[in-house]
Amino acid sequence: MNDGTKVRRAGELIARLDLTNLNDDCSEADVAALIEKAETPSGPVAAICIWPAFVGFARRELSARIKVATVVNFPLGGSDIDATLLETQKAVQDGADEIDLVIAYDRVAEDPGFVEAHVRTIRANCGHAKLKTILETGKLYDEATIRVACNAALSGGADFLKTSTGKVEVNATPASARILLEEIAKAGSTVGFKPAGGIRTFEDADGYMRLAETICGIDYPTPERFRLGASGVLADLLAVAQGSERPGGKAGY
């Protein structure tokens, strides 16, 4: 990849970034700082992803061209559909554009029908908001179970398949990403894909976008269908986009 291609690619990745703060001690001031970062020198990120408590504040303060994403049933993926439904309805009312739902991943192997029903219920109550289903692939352990989770979420009407919460030991990996993308390709749909957790460098981010292009087609990973769930990768992407010194002393190119 030559220097010009890297600069262009880094800008494309920034436009597909869900800039995230889901720290336990996140405050309104932290969200305000995230909003400020979201309008980067290389263009806006796709969305910010924050706790539900801050959705109303973020929607008031954020440019309309940047989406507000929030999380429900997060991070443990419980089985209380009513509680998740209330979270979702409140988030949509407050102005959320996207809902990132943790599925009941501990029930996938034994009761995928429950997972499908859970997703379908939340999808029916999202209104205009997109539903991104978090499968927590690092807790599903084997390929077959991950594929069952994908199919349950897709059957329930998910708009996106997302790998991880970023809160467990194993988050996004190329292997799990490949499985999700293969199931999206089989469905022949426009379902989106979001790897999350452990994406720290331009090379990490670019690798996932290349994988999406390879499996789902070169035109697949638009900002509407491909997102990167990360908080720490922005500085590296900006350095590459601007040809400046990268964190860790790497050259911008």
Rank of each mutant, 00 (worst) to 15 (best):
D3I: 14
T5L: 13
V7F: 13
A10H: 08
E12W: 04
I14T: 02
L19Y: 04
L19F: 11
T20E: 03
N21H: 05
N21V: 00
L22M: 07
N23W: 01
C26V: 15
D30G: 14
V31F: 12
A33D: 13
A33T: 08
L34H: 06
P41T: 08
A46P: 00
A46M: 05
A46V: 00
F54V: 02
F54A: 08
V55C: 01
G56I: 00
G56P: 00
F57K: 11
R60C: 07
L62Y: 02
K67W: 03
V72R: 02
G78F: 01
G78D: 13
A83D: 12
L86T: 12
A91G: 05
D97H: 15
D106I: 00
R107D: 05
E110C: 10
P112T: 07
G113C: 00
A117M: 11
T121E: 15
I122M: 07
A124Q: 13
A124M: 04
G127W: 06
H128F: 11
K130L: 14
K130C: 03
K130W: 13
T133E: 04
L135Y: 02
E136N: 06
E136L: 06
K139S: 13
L140R: 02
D142V: 13
T145H: 05
T145V: 15
I146E: 02
A149M: 04
C150S: 03
N151D: 15
A152S: 06
A152T: 00
A152Q: 01
S155A: 15
A158T: 13
F160I: 13
L161M: 05
L161E: 01
T163R: 07
T163C: 10
T165E: 04
E169R: 15
V170T: 15
N171E: 14
A175H: 12
S176A: 15
L181G: 04
E182T: 13
E183H: 05
K186P: 00
G188Q: 08
G188Y: 12
S189N: 10
S189R: 14
G192Y: 07
F193Y: 09
K194S: 09
A196I: 01
G197I: 01
I199W: 07
F202H: 03
E203P: 01
A205R: 09
G207P: 05
R210C: 10
G217Y: 11
R225M: 04
R227K: 13
R227V: 12
L228V: 10
G229R: 02
S231E: 06
S231T: 07
G232Y: 01
V233S: 14
V233A: 14
A241K: 03
A241T: 04
Q242L: 15
G243E: 02
E245P: 00
E245D: 09
R246I: 09
P247R: 07
P247V: 03
G252V: 11
Y253V: 08
